[in-house]
Simulated scan of single mutants.
Amino acid sequence: MSSGAVVRAWRPGLAGVVEVLHAHFPSHAYPTHTHDAWTVLIVDEGAVRYDLDHREHGLAQAQVSLLPPNVPHDGRSVLPQGFRKRVLYLAPDRLGDGLIGAAVDQPEYVDPLLRHRIHQLHGVLEDGREDLEAQSRLTLIEERLGQHLRHHVTGPPEKYNLGVAADLRDLLDAHVPDGITLEDAAKVVHAHPAHLVRAFSREFGMPPHRYLTGRRVDLARRYLLDGRPAAEVATLAGFYDQSHLNRHFRKLLGVTPASFLKR
C-alpha cells in the first residue's frame, strides 16, 4: 500500500454518477489503466502529471481534467509531498461517444466557474440529503463540459473504433469476469495472436492482460460500492481469490478494498 494513502469512495444516489472518490496519495503512482466512465478530476493539493494516449499532461489546482472512457492513462505526483484529489466518475452515456476524441486532444480546462461547480457538487454529495440540488449542479457541470468538448471537436470519429486493437478491446470488455484466451480472441478477430498483442500494446499503451486486470478492478469497485463482501467480489470480478484481488487492487489504487470503502 502507498505509505499514508487515504481513499474514500462511495456510490451516490445521483443518476449519472457511478462513483465519487476523494483521495490523498503521498507517494502512489497509478500504472496505465482505463475506466469505462468519464473521469472528472480536480486537485486540491499538489499537482499531477499523467500520460493520456501517449501524450503527457499536467493538472494543477486551478484546472479541471476530463478523462474519456476507455482511453489509457496513468498518474503521478509532480511534487514530493504527493497530492489530494476529488473525482466524479460519470456514466459513459452522459457526454457522448462522439466527444471522446475532443477529450483526448484537450483534457484540461482552466475554467474557475466549472471548478467551483464541481467543488459545490462534491459538498452536496458528501451531505447526501439534497437530491434536487445535486441533480441541478450535475446538469450545469455536464452542460459546461459539453461546451468545452464541442469547442475542441476537430474532425471525423476518432481512431478508437478502428482496427484489431479496438476489436480485441471490445472482446475483452465482453469477457471481463470470465476472461478469454489469446488463441480464442485471435480466432474471433481473425488475427495472429502475436500481432494482436503488438497492436493492442501499441494502440493502448499496455498489453491485453493488464487491460483486463484493470477492468476487473473497476468491476470490483462497483461491487464493493454495492456493499458486497470482498471475498464474493473477488469471484464476481474474475479474480482467483481475495488475495489476488487485494494485490491488484492495491497496485492500481494504492489501498486495499477494505480501505477503499472507509468513510
Rank of each mutant, 00 (worst) to 15 (best):
L212Q: 08
E183N: 11
G227Y: 03
P207T: 01
R202L: 11
F200D: 02
V217C: 07
Y211P: 05
L236M: 11
L252M: 13
A186M: 06
N246R: 15
P207V: 06
L252V: 14
A231Q: 14
Y211I: 01
A186V: 02
A220F: 05
V189M: 02
V217F: 06
A234R: 02
L236R: 09
F249H: 05
I180R: 02
L224I: 04
L225V: 03
V197R: 07
H192A: 13
A191H: 08
D184T: 12
R222C: 09
R210G: 04
A237V: 05
L196M: 08
V188Y: 08
Y211H: 11
Y240R: 15
L225M: 09
R222T: 13
R250T: 15
D184A: 14
K251S: 15
G238I: 03
F200Y: 07
L225I: 06
R222V: 12
R198E: 14
N246K: 13
P207Q: 08
T235Y: 12
R210I: 10
K251E: 15
H195D: 14
V189E: 04
H244G: 10
L212Y: 03
R216Q: 11
L252W: 09
A220Y: 04
F204M: 00
R216I: 06
R215A: 08
Y240F: 15
A194V: 09
T235A: 15
V217S: 04
T213P: 07
G227Q: 05
D241S: 04
A191S: 10
L224V: 05
D226C: 08
A220I: 06
A199M: 03
A185E: 01
V189N: 05
V233R: 00
V197S: 00
Q242L: 13
A230T: 14
G238C: 05
S201A: 12
L196E: 03
A191V: 08
D184W: 06
Y211T: 02
D184E: 14
P229Y: 04
R250C: 14
T213A: 14
Y240A: 15
R250I: 12
R215Q: 09
A186P: 04
L224S: 02
K251G: 13
R222K: 13
Y211Q: 06
T181Y: 00
E183M: 10
V233C: 04
F239G: 01
D218C: 13
L245G: 06
P207H: 04
S243G: 15
G214Y: 01
L225E: 07
A186Q: 01
L236P: 07
R222Y: 12
L212R: 10
P207N: 03
R250D: 15
H209P: 09
L245R: 03
H209C: 11
E232T: 12
P193H: 07
A234E: 01
L236G: 00
R228N: 10
V189F: 07
F200L: 07
T213R: 14
F200R: 02
H190L: 12
H192R: 11
A234F: 00
A185C: 02
Y240L: 15
L182G: 07
H192E: 13
R215F: 02
